Computed example of a mutant assay.
Amino acid sequence: MKVKKLNISFLKSGSGSLNTRIVLPITWVRELGLSQDEREVYLYKIGEEIVIRKIPRIFDKKEAARIAFDEVKKIISIKEYIEHREIIEILKTIIESYFIGIKEKERNNKVVSLITVLRDSFLDKKYEFVIDNNKQYFFDKKKYKFKTVKELRDYFKIKRV
């Protein structure tokens, strides 16, 4: 891995809004296969990183699950729990944002397969879930010992929808 410390330029437009620019080393740009004729790139914000790619990402279940797991962990660290449907929305967003050209039916299949991978990851880690006929919540099993959705809802004062 190569590292270079750079500064971002902040520019004010005529309307007063801020824009940013960063100058990349020409050797890195050439190594990516970019030129004045081929200058289209794909930018991805993954956690604390910004990734620049010449070609879009191809769907990778492990990578998508890793990104989703990091997002879900972040939410659980703030809220202490997460609802199953929130996880599905995160998965849909990840698939739409990071993996270009996936049709709706294919995306739904990928969401289903990812939720299985994610659930297995949760159970291998420090998360547990409670489920009833309508809702499923994941939470930190080292902090909490909920046996039912009602216990979790009562503890966090979650209103039924």
Rank of each mutant, 00 (worst) to 15 (best):
V23M: 05
L114A: 08
K73F: 02
P56T: 07
D70T: 12
E104K: 14
V149H: 01
K135A: 08
I52W: 06
E38D: 14
P25T: 00
V41M: 05
R30K: 15
R153V: 02
T116N: 12
G16Q: 02
E31T: 08
N134H: 12
I8H: 03
G33V: 01
V111K: 04
I52P: 03
N108F: 12
I88G: 06
K45G: 06
K61R: 13
G33F: 09
K110E: 03
I88K: 10
K126W: 02
F146G: 02
V72A: 10
I67R: 03
K61F: 07
A64W: 05
L152F: 02
Y127N: 02
F138Y: 14
P56M: 08
Q36M: 09
Y144W: 07
I90H: 10
D120V: 07
R53N: 10
F156C: 07
N7Q: 13
D37R: 09
K2D: 10
T93S: 15
I94W: 11
R30V: 03
K125G: 13
S17V: 11
F99I: 02
R160E: 12
S15V: 00
M1D: 08
V51Q: 13
I50E: 04
T27K: 15
I75K: 15
V72C: 05
E86S: 14
I95R: 04
I52H: 03
M1Y: 07
I55H: 15
S13F: 00
V161I: 10
I58M: 06
S35K: 08
S113R: 11
K61G: 02
L123N: 01
Y127Q: 00
F59Y: 15
F138T: 00
L91V: 09
D60C: 11
R119T: 14
S13L: 03
K54N: 05
E86L: 07
N19Y: 09
I26H: 10
S121Y: 13
K54L: 05
R160L: 11
Y155V: 07
I67N: 01
V112C: 00
K62T: 09
T27W: 07
N7R: 14
F59W: 06
I100Y: 14
S15Y: 00
E151A: 05
S35L: 02
Q136I: 02
F146R: 04
F146M: 00
K73T: 05
I115L: 13
R153H: 04
D132M: 07
G16H: 08
E128N: 10
K142D: 14
F156T: 01
G33E: 05
E49H: 07
T27A: 13
T116Q: 13
F156W: 05
F69T: 03
K145R: 11
R39S: 15
G101C: 04
V23C: 09
I158K: 09
S9P: 00
G14D: 12
D124P: 00
A65L: 04
K12V: 05
E71R: 06
D140E: 08
D120T: 10
V130E: 01
E104T: 11
F122H: 03
W28H: 08
I100D: 08
S15A: 12
V3G: 12
E48T: 12
I78M: 10
I55F: 15
K142C: 04
I78N: 15
N7C: 01
I8V: 15
V111W: 01
